[in-house]
């Protein structure tokens, strides 16, 4: 069966541009609701363009992989609206785990880091997307959906809807949404936490559309009124060059692999351990940064993001 779904991310492009213009105008006239800086924003936009180009160049790899799986699966759930709805929810669960791997496995982080490399949080940050996602091989996490009988075209379609949903949450112009919405859905407040480099906010709120996954799997941290989010990387990069933004962590992995005195087991660990791991034990970790923060601010112990299980 051949299924045709629209490429929704392409169709949303004019909306993205318009929404960015509106957010900028809002911040300019209201003098609140976020920050823009020209070099940072243009880097984010060029990263977005590069991501689309990357998809055109190597996207066929994932497409062929899924079509090969589709050819061997005996299941076909069809394309009724409820099948699409279930596919959307399951694909969002898939997104949660790929995103979590993206922060806890350096090989995947090398692709995802560029999205966190801005020290700003506005709608252009949403477009600061990876150029190298295909090389993480995280497409494998989508394989069960195809084998369960969801058509690859449908999976790409719901994946596109997921990305579009995540665009609008990259803003400081919206404070909090209604309580019921904050309970179920990913929101600007929840996702601001995810982009924070404050120790409290590290490795939290991986959700794409539904924040329930973080609540279920113990990674949810609510935004705290008394601790504004400091955006960016734990140690920020020193360039606006999109090529360097896109590839810097891959280069760092290569340098770690080729330094003197490392074994093949060390090289394996440099790829699969969390970012910050070092073979000589001198590296850092999320847990270590949280412990340091609590040591300096004992009153934070046990508060959201500093529970015993996270340290």
């Amino acid at each position: 069966m051949t299924l045709n779904f629209p490429n929704v991310t392409d169709l949303a492009t004019p909306f993205f541009v318009l929404a960015i213009a509106l957010e900028m105008a809002w911040i300019f006239y209201e003098k609140r609701g976020g920050r823009y800086e020209a070099q940072d924003a243009m880097t984010s936009l060029f990263m977005g363009v590069g991501s689309v180009v990357s998809g055109l160049l190597v996207g066929f790899i994932a497409y062929w992989f899924f079509m090969a799986l589709w050819a061997i699966t005996p299941l076909d759930l069809g394309h009724a609206w409820w099948v699409i709805a279930i596919c959307f929810v399951l694909d969002d669960l898939r997104y949660y785990w790929v995103h979590r791997f993206g922060h806890r496995i350096r090989w995947v982080w090398a692709s995802h880091v560029n999205h966190h490399s801005s020290q700003h949080y506005n709608l252009t940050t949403a477009l600061r997307q990876t150029w190298t996602g295909t090389f993480t091989l995280m497409m494998i996490v989508r394989a069960p959906l195809v084998l369960m009988g969801f058509h690859p075209a449908m999976i790409f379609f719901v994946g596109g809807l997921n990305l579009i949903y995540q665009f609008w949450i990259h803003t400081e112009a919206i404070d909090k949404c209604p309580r019921w919405f904050e309970a179920v859905m990913n929101t600007p407040s929840h996702h601001r936490v995810h982009h924070g480099r404050n120790a409290r906010y590290l490795d939290a709120n991986y959700a794409g559309v539904f924040i329930i996954w973080d609540r279920m799997f113990g990674t949810f941290v609510p935004e705290q009124r008394d601790e504004p989010v400091d955006y960016g990387l734990v140690h920020n990069i020193g360039t606006f060059n999109p090529l360097r933004v896109a590839f810097h962590e891959w280069v760092a992995i290569f340098k770690d692999w080729t330094q003197p005195g490392v074994t093949w087991y060390d090289r394996w660990n440099y790829a699969i351990k969390p970012p910050g791991w070092r073979h000589d034990g001198k590296g850092g970790s999320t847990e270590m940064l949280k412990r340091i923060d609590v040591k300096r601010n004992p009153e934070k112990a046990g508060t959201p993001g500093f529970e015993e299980s996270r340290m």
Partner: peptide
């Protein structure tokens, strides 16, 4: 050093 509205270090 300053990078736009922010700073970074080395």
């Amino acid at each position: 050093w300053v990078m736009g509205l922010d700073a970074t270090s080395h």
